[in-house]
Design a protein around this nucleic acid. Structure first.
Length: 465
RNA sequence: GCCGAUUUAGCUUAGCUGGUGGAGCGUGGGACUGUUAAUCCCAAGGUCAUGGGUUCGAGCCCCAUAAUCGGCGCCA
């Protein structure tokens, strides 16, 4: 069927003002010797009373622009001088390859128009000293001014890498015919056994004046409800945890890539986990090598993550290894970060840890039919001290077993009735995992803190800006 | 919830034994014909987080409060 489609007038008219030339294209030599118009923001400005160097940046890069008083005239030269850092301006000029300019190109200015001036009484607050003090990390000041810090090259780089990570996850699952599926963010109960939920007042009723909703901690339970319909499903969505964690690995609002597959076992789920992580690393090498290098990230290291198989070791072996290293740990304990850190110290690629003791994991993890002391689960631990990035496994799938596990834990059945129904009507073996997208970004960029890879981080003490 | 620390100009900081708070960046003015975080000269800019206390005298010592940062548990 042929379809005619025409842009509405209003959209077409916007096109006349739209920006058409990007600085990265100028730096790639596409406009040598041409007169062009650049739109952007002032990154830096310096000069004498006869010549002015202004570094213009846009979303793609930065280029030095040169203006001379004798060619521009006094008024235009003064205007050029008055464009303070982060003023938005439009510059017309000629592209001139010049070795003296950083990047090898400069724009010889013919005219300048200041679009959004910056008042000298209130200059852009993020100075070189503020950036130097952060030393690639973050300071309280930069966190307070996050909305402005986003414009700096470091944050811009992080956000571009982040975009590629999200894109890689979507294409990995979609290329294998997974269906993207959305679960509610307001929920009635917890996913994790009794763990920390954000409460939200939710339209009190006469019967229930204290009625509350909670922000979801995971997409999983609602995904399991759709598993018999879609069989292979995934999402990338925010999850919320009201833990007062103050670590470089925790946020109260984080982006959670989750998947669920019918008729799959723990080993198969792990293959998907390995697949998506390697796909992310591959995509970053293809799309963001320059950005990774600007963060001093070694591309060989990322290539190793992209090209290697991820070893799978059982919880028992990990405990023995740790005990052999003199770490105090008893069988049955979950592996906390201090243990993970010791364990992953010598890893040069991510490792799966499987078969945790049943007592360390919640009811939805399926008990190993070969040994009922264990569950069929896995965590993926990233090297370089970044720790857990994936948690997943097989689900308890028969009605009989799920009821037994819920009762055994002392968890009330009522909030999970819809979840139990999934088993009552044609339950099948299935499983899935959750991947901490921000943690993966943090690990692959080599960030010192998970906050560095998300535009507006939320933790137990900060919700602004 | 627990442990540790910080708070001096818009930003980054120095500040001795308790004796009238200095600098760099940024901003303003001036100089300079090509700079690379330009450079040089000058100026403005401070309730030393808040509230008490000790003292002849507190940025500094003591107590409390607040905000923030780092780490642990929990997890992705």
């Amino acid at each position: 069927m042929k379809r005619d489609f025409q842009l509405p007038d209003i959209i077409r008219s916007i096109g006349e003002d739209m920006k058409t030339i990007w600085i990265s294209d100028v730096l790639n030599g596409k406009f040598d010797g041409q007169n062009i118009e650049l739109k952007g923001w002032v990154k830096r400005s310096r000069g004498s009373n006869k010549i002015r160097f202004l570094v213009l940046r846009d979303s793609t890069g930065a280029i030095q622009c040169v203006g001379k008083k004798d060619t521009l005239g006094d008024d235009a030269f003064e205007q050029l001088k008055s464009a303070l850092i982060e003023s938005s301006i439009i510059i017309n000029g000629m592209v001139n390859p010049d070795e003296r300019a950083d990047g090898g190109y400069e724009l010889v200015i013919q005219s300048v128009e200041i679009i959004g001036p910056v008042n000298p009484k209130n200059p852009f607050p993020i100075t070189e000293s503020a950036m130097a003090a952060a030393d690639g990390g973050e300071t309280e000041f930069l966190l307070d001014n996050r909305h402005l810090y986003l414009r700096t090259s470091r944050m811009t780089t992080m956000l571009k890498i982040r975009s590629s990570v999200f894109g890689a996850i979507h294409s990995y699952f979609r290329n294998q015919d997974f269906i993207e599926y959305q679960a509610p963010n307001f929920v009635a109960g917890a996913v994790e056994g009794g763990s920390t939920l954000f409460e939200v007042p939710y339209f009190p009723t006469e019967k229930n004046p204290e009625r509350k909703a909670y922000l979801t901690q995971s997409w999983q339970l609602y995904a399991e409800a759709a598993m018999p319909a879609l069989e292979r499903l995934y999402t990338i969505a925010p999850s919320f945890r009201a833990e007062k964690s103050r670590t470089r690995r925790h946020l109260t609002e984080f982006w959670h890539a989750e998947m669920e597959v019918a008729w799959a076992n723990n080993q198969e789920i792990m293959s998907y986990g390995e697949g998506v992580v390697r796909k992310i690393a591959t995509t970053l090498l293809e799309e963001r090598s320059a950005e990774l290098e600007s963060l001093d990230r070694d591309l060989e290291t990322i290539a190793r993550y992209a090209d290697s198989k991820f070893p799978r070791i059982r919880y028992d072996e990990a405990v023995e290894t740790l005990q052999g290293m003199g770490v105090e740990i008893e069988w049955g304990q979950d592996l906390d970060y201090s243990k993970e850190k010791v364990l992953t110290q010598d890893f040069d690629v991510p490792h799966f840890l499987t078969h945790y003791p049943k007592i360390a994991k919640p009811f939805y993890h399926r008990v190993d039919p070969d040994d009922e002391n264990y569950v069929l689960c896995h965590d993926l631990l990233a090297p370089e001290g970044y720790g857990e990035i994936i948690g997943g496994g097989e689900r308890t799938w028969s009605e009989e077993e799920i009821l037994a596990r819920i009762d055994e834990e002392g968890t009330p059945r009522e909030p999970y009735q819809f979840y139990i129904d999934t088993r009552t009507y044609g339950g099948v073996p299935h499983g899935g995992f959750g991947l901490g997208v921000d943690r993966v970004c943090s690990w692959l960029t080599g960030a010192d803190h998970i906050r560095e890879v998300i535009p507006f981080p939320r933790d137990s003490r900060r919700i602004t800006p």
